[in-house]
Design a protein around this nucleic acid. Sequence first.
RNA 1: GCGCCGGUAGCUCAAUUGGCAGAGCAUUUGACUCUUAAUCAACAGGUUCCGGGUUCAAGUCCCGGCCGGCGCACCA
Length: 556
Amino acid sequence: MTKGVEGDWVADVADRVAEAAERRQIIGPIVCASGVSPSGPIHLGNLRELMVPHLVADELRRRGLPARHLLSWDDYDRLRKIPIEVPPDFAKHIGRPLTNVPDPTGEYENWAEHFKVPFRVALQRLGVEVEEVSQTDAYRSGAYRVQILTAMQHRTAIYDILTQFRTKNVGADDDDQDETEDTGPYRATYSPYRPYCRACGRDLTHVTAYDDATTELTYHCDCGYHDVLRLDAVDHGKLVWKVDWPMRWAFEDVVFEAGGVDHSSPGSSFTVGEQIVGKVFGGDSPEYIQYSFVGTDGAAKMSGSRGSALTPSEALGIVEPSALRSLYCREPRKSFTVAFDEKICNLYEDWDRLVARVTQGTGDRRERAVYARSVATASAPLPQTPRVVSFRSLASVVDITGGDPVQLLRIVGELLDDPPPSSLDEVRPRLDCAAAWVNGYVPADERTQVRTEPDLAALPSLYPRELEAINLLLADLETDWDLNGLTNLVYGVPKRQLGLPVEVKGRDPELQAEQRAFFTLLYHLLVGRETGPRLPTLLLSLGPDRIRSLLDPPRT
RNA sequence: GCGCCGGUAGCUCAAUUGGCAGAGCAUUUGACUCUUAAUCAACAGGUUCCGGGUUCAAGUCCCGGCCGGCGCACCA
């Protein structure tokens, strides 16, 4: 057996899962399952639903144990609500399966696909390999027909299990004692199977009768339609969630699955499912761990149906895949946030520090584990930025150069040691992340905006002394066109105006005041603000022509 | 009502199977021709929420509280 990674929760869970697989005498690959409803943008919280089983499956594979990672798309779920940006007439689709609702943008074949596609791309970039199962396909093809009939046979038992956990009285208000004696009105007609109406396609249906002998199910729909289905022949509905989930455990022989806290509370789907899988489907419940929400910034939870939810694709636009993976290596029970604001710099610093410690051999066990799981999967390494420049620096450089490739290459060369980069590809993808972040997430008033036109209001009214300073600057602008030369030049101009030799150092108050005034003048004329990036860097990135056009425009 | 997570330096958080409580930012001091969240070095910073218990040893494990966050209760 190959050796896996040790020293973290993933290894512990993998131990448990491997033992369970052996105990259950599973032959063939160990199934780790994820389930996602593509009802809205699939956000960074949902990604944890994938990443936790992924890491476990990946650890099993590292140990040489075959593992499958299933992604069940809950795309046969009903459309529940429509986001504000969608045309209101989509309300008519509420109650229909997500795969039966058109994509509002018209881009993809249906509503579900619209959200699946970008998520798939993100998974691929993160090195997460899954086998997708569409619940729509599974239900419609009759794959679960036997399980549905089984559930209907045991519908009263299912009702009683559900009742056991109920704390809110719905039917008769007896006390909690005699659930099995419950004869409330719901028990007699309870159906764990919910048909989609064959007239209107929605699930506003009410099951009124079921005949065990013929498997004939009678329902009526709020649309006015009445109908009878034979469940052993017709596939036009699904099991309710709390039954559907354990059914899949049995159907797929799931050995590991993770769930959010909302599924893990008592009376919620997992605790209920644990009983149903055994009593109804004769299967085992999977090894299970719960995970907490992933937020952005301070928000502890993101709602999938709000516009503010940020997705893995959006995150991957600004965070390198390995750095993002490293976040999901944290204890699943602990919630964390992904920074889209300026804290993203800390995120990168933490990641760079971790990489440095591990590659220098000073990292501890846990750090080595996080590193190992972040930079590669059992099957392949993830792409890395070849030469590391701090994200903060890159963002700043992108900001002041406006992304100009020539300027970028030169300044990045200044930031790197030893051999200068031959191409910007050496700092990609991080450079692209920094650019995307600056352009997409930094508020306009925090960005450096170089004037596009010279300040014609200010230029003519400059004091002679200010004009002189600018002329001194422009006269020697290209004499030493590099960071050092420009540094000496900008600091030297005020010295020359004061009649001081340019070599003087030290802190003459008069000189300092003069320098400050000069800098402020330049900032006003170049970027229209009191301050800005370090002047030498700024000048370097603007280039002589641009500087001249802003400081010494051709008079007309 | 039930469940989960958290409470550690001024702030944000680390701390592996129990093993000398640690970083970043901020503060202070010094250096940098110095203006921007693109420097460097050093000093300082603690009753780990409270009360018990187990242990040679507890931030960590157990019991009981307090405070905060999130979730669940026949919706998927």
